[in-house]
Simulated scan of single mutants.
Amino acid sequence: MMRFDPFREIEELTQRMDRAFGQGNGTARLAPPVDVHEDEQGLELTLDLPGVQPESIQIEAENQTLTVQAERKYSRIEGRTAHRVERAYGTLARTFSVPAKYDLTKVEADFDHGTLTIRVPRSEAAQKRAVSVRTGGQLSAPKTVDAGQADAPRAEAGQQA
């Protein structure tokens, strides 16, 4: 026995109208889910793109902006009636603002089983490096400084005053 769903007919009507007016035939613009992680090496973005062919994926990096776009097409077969079309079809797109401490010229991407993984490394200028500090004209032991945390020393200096 099926449970009564008062919204089922409305959903079906909406889907039919979307298909009739072009929303279900590849013109819909969808935002795929994404996970963004950061570590010492850089950023890692993981997007779900199920049913997408690798050759339809476009990744553009420009002016601290990373754009991912892919196409998932709905294939209509003549003589076959669709009773339900619930999966999303159309253009899958996401745009990300990437901080300047990451190097968009060295972006790497892997696509495996419908999952796109993009790695954006830290720029050379943002890498940790040892800096020698002079005291009384003599060099002391190098101190490691993280260029990405340039605001931290200023905050500590303000607390001491």
Score class of each variant (00 low, 15 high):
residue 65 T to N: 12
residue 56 S to Q: 08
residue 67 T to I: 07
residue 60 E to M: 10
residue 47 L to Y: 00
residue 65 T to H: 11
residue 40 E to A: 14
residue 54 P to M: 05
residue 43 L to K: 04
residue 52 V to Q: 08
residue 40 E to T: 14
residue 72 R to F: 02
residue 63 N to A: 15
residue 48 D to V: 15
residue 63 N to I: 03
residue 60 E to I: 09
residue 48 D to E: 15
residue 71 E to I: 14
residue 47 L to K: 01
residue 69 Q to I: 11
residue 73 K to M: 12
residue 45 L to Y: 02
residue 57 I to G: 07
residue 57 I to V: 06
residue 43 L to T: 07
residue 46 T to E: 13
residue 62 E to S: 13
residue 60 E to S: 10
residue 63 N to M: 07
residue 58 Q to E: 14
residue 66 L to K: 00
residue 42 G to L: 05
residue 50 P to C: 05
residue 57 I to Q: 03
residue 69 Q to G: 10
residue 48 D to A: 15
residue 52 V to R: 06
residue 44 E to P: 11
residue 49 L to E: 06
residue 48 D to N: 15
residue 73 K to I: 12
residue 53 Q to T: 14
residue 51 G to W: 00
residue 44 E to R: 15
residue 67 T to C: 05
residue 40 E to K: 13
residue 67 T to D: 03
residue 43 L to S: 03
residue 67 T to S: 08
residue 58 Q to F: 10
residue 51 G to K: 00
residue 48 D to Q: 15
residue 54 P to N: 06
residue 55 E to Y: 10
residue 42 G to H: 05
residue 60 E to V: 09
residue 71 E to C: 12
residue 58 Q to D: 11
residue 52 V to W: 08
residue 51 G to I: 04
residue 57 I to C: 07
residue 65 T to Q: 11
residue 73 K to E: 12
residue 71 E to N: 12
residue 61 A to Q: 04
residue 51 G to S: 02
residue 60 E to N: 09
residue 43 L to R: 02
residue 44 E to L: 12
residue 50 P to M: 03
residue 53 Q to A: 15
residue 54 P to C: 03
residue 46 T to I: 14
residue 70 A to C: 00
residue 71 E to V: 14
residue 57 I to Y: 01
residue 59 I to P: 03
residue 68 V to A: 01
